[in-house]
Write a protein that binds this DNA or RNA. Structure first.
Length: 214
DNA sequence: CGCTTTTGACCCGCGC
DNA sequence: GCGCGGGTCAAAAGCG
């Protein structure tokens, strides 16, 4: 499909009081990353959706606006104990004491947030995910679910959360890029569009859906 | 049977 | 230094 390049006006760097409302992920070939406020991210998104040009990417606002986390959140960085996956982490080393995080070069993990309106929490994006955790976050009444791509060597993670404010809105945050092709046909992708509508918290008039993907 | 989900514990960074 | 909040692991249960 084409690229639905919808960049937002980007707006100003806000960061002033209240929620952070900036960053977004651009999608598609014309992708433009506008100011992302997320952490690393260097590869500038290499197609999230594989050959399909990534598909729509949107941003999410207010994932947690309590006191901390004005918009940036700790980059994960493989904490956990013990080894974890092969990919590159190893930092923690055996010394349980201070896990200094030196890592030299491999830490680039782009993050993309989408905000969609859907009745089902997990949208089928063509990849297979295994849930590895679920936690309740402070300001939301709905728990946040953590998924990881099951493909070997692919450390893409994703977390899904529903806003307590709008039960209809589901925020999906992807972290990392897939290193393998999708296993499902993309036709399905259209199907997923049927079950949700892209929702933009800021503009609100992104035209409403369906028209953009035909 | 194999794999996914479930669920409590653990761990870590940061704020106080 | 302690506590909170959040992210991940790992063991057992569930489901196809």
């Amino acid at each position: 499909m084409e690229n639905y390049h919808m960049l937002f006006g980007a707006t100003q760097p806000s960061s002033s009081t209240s929620n952070s409302y900036n960053f977004l992920a651009a999608g598609a070939g014309g992708g433009t990353t506008s100011g992302l406020q997320l952490r690393d991210h260097d590869r500038g998104q290499q197609q999230v959706g594989h050959s399909h040009s990534g598909g729509p990417s949107f941003l999410a606002a207010e994932l947690s606006n309590s006191s901390k986390d004005g918009g940036a959140s700790p980059p994960a960085a493989a904490a956990g104990r013990g080894e974890s996956s092969a990919a590159a982490e190893a930092d923690r080393t055996a010394a349980g004491g201070a896990g200094k995080r030196k890592s030299e070069k491999k830490e680039r993990r782009p993050r993309y947030a989408f905000q969609t309106r859907s009745q089902v929490d997990i949208l089928d994006d063509g990849y297979r995910w295994r849930k590895y955790g679920q936690k309740a976050v402070k300001n939301n009444k709905f728990p946040r679910s953590y998924y990881r791509c099951t493909h070997q060597g692919c450390n893409v993670k994703k977390q899904v959360q529903r806003l307590s404010r709008d039960e209809a809105v589901v925020v999906t945050t992807y972290e990392g890029t897939h290193t393998h092709p999708i296993e499902k046909s993309n036709d399905n992708f259209e199907h997923i569009l049927t079950q949700m509508q892209i929702y933009s918290g800021m503009g609100s008039n992104f035209s409403s859906s369906h028209n953009m993907f035909h």
